[in-house]
């Protein structure tokens, strides 16, 4: 459906909603799709784009949202998750908005979605070739932890001048015998660019490597798009003798579905103060609970 048809349909339904299909005007979508193509051509490289103000707050997923709205069509089925959950604030406001501006089917089922917009998680169920995962990115510049200036980090990426971030890891290990970066752990993409994977837990980092689906990253406030095309080498930064370690959930299982090889949320009971664990991926958990 073109934008015009969309507006006509809306008017025929006597709605006074005068926005284009998928909210953005077609020129904007075209521009963003061109930037996506560039990002796919240079895996891990941050492509600048003229991010539009969206009706949700800057820092609330406006980058991911613009990507989703630029690639989505009438035949798509959308899933939106926030921290793994389909029902969390951010996911709900985004779903409500997208439904309002393009009325496409929305699902909680990972397997049924063609486009999944996510904040801080990769679903537990394996993604396929026909699916696109869109990440919301708060701070796209991984080198920001060691360098505040954009001009400088841009040069560092161009020259692959990455010793400072390696040194950051080195110093952590020397002082704490542990790396202090929790979520959003730096990865090397296609042996060229060090990239911020968005604040996904380290548990999800291995899923980036040779992913079967296209992974798109959008940072609205910082105005950057980047991508990992399918089957690209993506490796966390690690030393030969201090290897990358994911979060440790050994001996813990989901209190609802009993899953053990998943990312778990720690839940503290109001009264007893005891800790229990639940799947972070709520739709996966529900699926397992169904008879």
């Amino acid at each position: 459906m073109t934008g015009k048809e969309w507006i006509m349909n809306q008017q025929n339904n006597k709605q006074t909603f005068l926005y284009n299909f998928a909210y953005l005007d077609e020129n904007t979508k075209k521009e963003i799709r061109r930037k996506i193509l560039k990002a796919v051509a240079i895996p891990g490289y941050q492509v600048p784009f003229a991010s539009r103000e969206m009706p949700i707050g800057r820092g609330w997923g406006t980058g991911g949202l613009q990507l989703t709205l630029s690639i989505i069509g009438c035949a798509d089925t959308l899933k939106v998750i926030d921290q793994g959950s389909d029902d969390s604030v951010n996911a709900i406001s985004i779903k409500k908005f997208i439904q309002k501006v393009c009325s496409i089917p929305i699902t909680n089922d990972t397997k049924k979605a063609t486009v999944i917009q996510t904040r801080h998680r990769i679903p537990e169920e394996k993604l396929e070739k026909n699916q696109i995962l869109v990440f919301q990115v708060p701070v796209p510049e991984i080198l920001r932890i060691i360098e505040p200036s954009d001009q400088v980090t841009k040069r560092m990426h161009a020259e692959a001048d990455y010793s400072a971030i390696w040194l950051y890891l080195y110093e952590d290990i020397i002082h704490f015998n542990e790396i202090s970066i929790g979520a959003g752990y730096p990865v090397m993409v296609n042996q060229r660019y060090i990239m911020d994977p968005s604040p996904i837990p380290r548990f999800d980092i291995p899923k980036l490597n040779h992913s079967r689906s296209l992974l798109l990253f959008g940072a609205g406030r910082e105005k950057r798009i980047y991508a990992i095309p399918p089957f690209t080498d993506v490796h966390p930064l690690e030393f030969e003798d201090f290897t990358f370690r994911t979060e440790d959930f050994s001996g813990k299982t989901c209190s609802k579905c009993n899953a053990s090889d998943v990312y778990l949320d720690e839940i503290i009971d109001d009264e007893s103060g005891t800790r229990s664990y639940q799947c972070s991926d709520t739709s996966y958990c529900e699926k397992r609970c169904q008879p």
Partner: peptide, 11 residues
Amino acid sequence: LPHYVSFQSAL
């Protein structure tokens, strides 16, 4: 917004 996944990772 909830940050419990990343906070869990930091924990």
